[in-house]
Amino acid sequence: MLNVLGVRIHQKKRTIPFPQSEPVLPDRFRGRPQIESSRCSSGCHRCVDTCPTDAISFNSNKITIDLGRCLFCGECSAICPEQAIRYTTDYRLAVRRREELVMSSNELSLATALQEESRRLFGRSLKLREVSAAGCNACEADVNVLNTVVFDLGRFGIQFVASPRHADGILITGCVSRNMLLGLKKTYEAIPDPKIVIAVGACAISGGPFIDHPEIHNGAGAILPVDLYVPGCPPHPMTILDGLLRLLGNIR
């Protein structure tokens, strides 16, 4: 018993004081890209050719990145001779509408809060059901990690529950395989109205690296009405937490 207490003291309190203070992310973390189209003088389009998910395009000489497809692999940045694309350590990436993920300037319309009535219902207690629909266990792991003492999701009133009947919404990871379509739909239908839908990761938003495989449905967007998109492959837990708190109006 004394041993247990000793270890408890030694392991200390490790919950990060978010959102009161900014988290420290590794210097090599690849978050929101910084686009400087003016640097792109040669127009070599190597970034377009190298992007594994064809997330990059040119619109009247301006570089456009679809963060819904982006794997944040950084290969565009590495190949660009002019450094027109750089990845910053800004982890705040979640948005409310799919088209807001298509970035041509460096502004991202970060997620706004739910409407007043939904916030009254969910603002202090949001129960979510997680469905992995052909996720690779990276997004799942980084959602799960929010339950550890580091992030302590429960202090924000957000909890993952074991039945859709207990849930206010659904959090989807994975590209939605054909074999998970029915399971996903049934889970959604079993959640009482009103309900919200959160898509986490490039797969759930667009299909990610599996885009257009005949075995998948290119993400949740075509199947369910998504309220929050959290891009990344996988998104950093801070990105997910930031998105959830913005949706509930805890961060503005």
Binding site: A141, G174, P209, H213, I216, C233
Partner: peptide, 29 residues
């Protein structure tokens, strides 16, 4: 089988630039 994404076929049928990313996601952990 619920997680079947067709990786082995995708490695051959999709653009070669995607291969390493499919491999990285074959089991993300």
């Amino acid at each position: 089988g619920y997680q079947h994404r067709g990786i082995e076929r995708g490695l051959m049928e999709q653009p070669a630039k995607r291969r390493i990313h499919l491999i990285e996601c074959s089991a993300g952990d």
